[in-house]
Each structure stands twice: as structure tokens, then as C-alpha cells.
């Protein structure tokens, strides 16, 4: 049993990883709302965010911000490819949820294995965005990377809220989430909104992946654990509620880091899945309640 005397420190690092889970969770919600599909290829986008950035910096010599932006755009594009190639044909055939989940999992494996073939199995990492010793605040060490993670995540969530609330396209995406048929009857291009949802959700995953990589590492197979955590975040928040998912991510991140300190890192996933079970038993509609 580890010591909980570092509680503030634990909370701080939990919030960092929680933000990333939150971004991934929002990605799940955005696609689910647009289509009713649970996209398990989400983890591949997270892995690719860090991986593509690494490759662009390493092999093309690009500076981090440029590499990151290209990686996010590229992964968003890949999101659309997955939608067109994997999801759309099945959707048009009214495939069941089960088939859809399997298909997106297959897409995840294809991306994962292609990455293994292309860049090998060695873990890679990215430099800290700001390479300075951590700030000390009342005995709590706050790394600059943590500030980047929290800052960027909040900015992304804020921009997303603005997008859904004020733009024509954002409102149309919400309309599709509420009632796909009614949206189509207003001439809203429902299928384009689905492609957009995949692009958005892939970009969110990539951003999360890029932000977290400097604090740990990335490798071809890190996607699935992140996808599972993001999925749990989405459920804890109330599936289909993007901002609930972000809260869910923070909750999960904090509980996970408390568990790591208390019981050891080996029980990290046990903690995450326990959170899932507790919520499914006690409050299956999540923190914010069901979406519709």
C-alpha cells in the first residue's frame, strides 16, 4: 500500500491523463451522436497522433508545432477514409451495431499492424513542449507538459463547444444527433456530417496522443488501452454527451492515478475497469445522465 500523502500531486497528474481520456471520450460521443456507431478505431487515431508527429520530426526534420499540425490534419483525413471505406458501406447495408464494432476494431488492427511494419516495435517519444524543470506550487510539482495538456485540452473543449453552439455546421451536426431523419428532411447532408464526425473525432484522438506522448511514449500498440479508457470516460460521463465525457475522463484519470499510487501500476487497468463496473451498476446513465 503506497502513501496517499502526495494526494495533491496524484490529483494533478491524474488530471493530466484525464484530459487526454476526456478528449478520446469526446471523440466517441461525436461519432456516436452522428451515427449511433461506437468507433473502436478511436485508439488508432491516438497512437497515430504521436507516431506521425514523431516520424515527421525524425525523418523530415520538421519542428514540433508544424509536425503536430500536419499529424492532426493527416489523422483527421484518415478518419474520413475509415468512415468511407469501412463504416459507410456497412451503414448503407443497415449493419448491426455488433458488426459495426467488429469492423472498426478490424480497422484498428490494420492501422496498428501497418504501423508496426512501417516504424517497427520500438517505443518512440516526443520532446517536452517546454523543456524546463517543473514548477513547484505549494509542494506540488507541476510539469510544463501538464500545463500544455490541460491548457490545450480546455482550449479544444472550448472551441468545440463554440463550434457546436454557434456555427451552422455545428448546429447541423447537433440536429443530426437529435433526429437524423428530421435533419435529412431539412436538406442537411447527413452523410457528410458523419464523415465530418469521423474527422473531428480522429483529430481529437490525435491531439490527445500528441499531448500525452512526451510524458510517456508511443508505440504501435498503445491505441487499445487509450481507446478503452476513452470509452470508459464516455460511459462515465453519460454516453453521447461530449462534455460529460470530458468530466468522465478527468474522473477516470484521477481515480486511476490514486490506484497506481495505492496499489501499484499493475492495477491501473483494473482500476479503470472497476470504475466502469461501478458506474454501470450504480449510475448507468453516467454523471450527466443519458443524452436523449
Amino acid at each position: 500500500m503506497g502513501s496517499l500523502s502526495y494526494l495533491p500531486q496524484i490529483l494533478v497528474s491524474g488530471l493530466g491523463i484525464g484530459c487526454v481520456y476526456g478528449l478520446i471520450g469526446i471523440g466517441f460521443c461525436v461519432i456516436y451522436n452522428a451515427s449511433g456507431i461506437v468507433n473502436f478505431a478511436q485508439g488508432a487515431f491516438v497512437m497515430l497522433g504521436g507516431m506521425v508527429t514523431f516520424v515527421l520530426m525524425q525523418r523530415a526534420g520538421l519542428p514540433l508545432p508544424v509536425a503536430a499540425v500536419i499529424a492532426i490534419a493527416g489523422v483527421a483525413g484518415l478518419g474520413v477514409v475509415v468512415e468511407r471505406l469501412v463504416v459507410r458501406p456497412l451503414w448503407n447495408r443497415n449493419a448491426t451495431m455488433f458488426v459495426m464494432i467488429l469492423a472498426t476494431l478490424a480497422a484498428q488492427i490494420v492501422v496498428e499492424r501497418s504501423t508496426l511494419l512501417l516504424v517497427g516495435d520500438q517505443p518512440k517519444t516526443l520532446p517536452m513542449f517546454t523543456d524546463r524543470p517543473p514548477l513547484m506550487l505549494a509542494g506540488v510539482a507541476i510539469s510544463y507538459q501538464l500545463l500544455w495538456i490541460v491548457g490545450c485540452s480546455l482550449a479544444v473543449v472550448g472551441l468545440l463547444a463554440l463550434f457546436f453552439r454557434t456555427t451552422r455546421t455545428g448546429k447541423a451536426m447537433r440536429a443530426v444527433a437529435i433526429d437524423r431523419e428530421a435533419a435529412a428532411l431539412q436538406g442537411i447532408p447527413v452523410s457528410r456530417m458523419l464523415a465530418l464526425a469521423f474527422a473531428l473525432s480522429a483529430a481529437l484522438g490525435a491531439i490527445g496522443g500528441i499531448l500525452i506522448t512526451p510524458t510517456q511514449f508511443t508505440a504501435f500498440d498503445i491505441g487499445v488501452p487509450f481507446a478503452i479508457s476513452g470509452f470508459i470516460a464516455a460511459i462515465v460521463g453519460g454516453f453521447g454527451r461530449p462534455f460529460g465525457a470530458f468530466l468522465g475522463g478527468l474522473t477516470l484519470g484521477v481515480i486511476q492515478s490514486i490506484a497506481i499510487v495505492s496499489f501499484g501500476a499493475g492495477l491501473k487497468n483494473v482500476a479503470a475497469l472497476s470504475v466502469l463496473l461501478v458506474f454501470l451498476f450504480i449510475r448507468p446513465s453516467g454523471i450527466l445522465g443519458p443524452a436523449k
Binding site: 448546429k171 447537433r174 440536429a175 437529435i178 433526429d179 431523419e181 428530421a182 435533419a183 428532411l185
Partner: peptide, 12 residues
């Protein structure tokens, strides 16, 4: 078409 059941976007 104004569909049966109106199809308004309730939460908006």
C-alpha cells in the same frame, strides 16, 4: 415535408 410527430429538434 413536415413529418408526422413534427420532428422538431427538441433540445435546441
Amino acid at each position: 415535408l413536415v413529418p408526422e410527430g413534427r420532428g422538431i429538434f427538441g433540445p435546441m
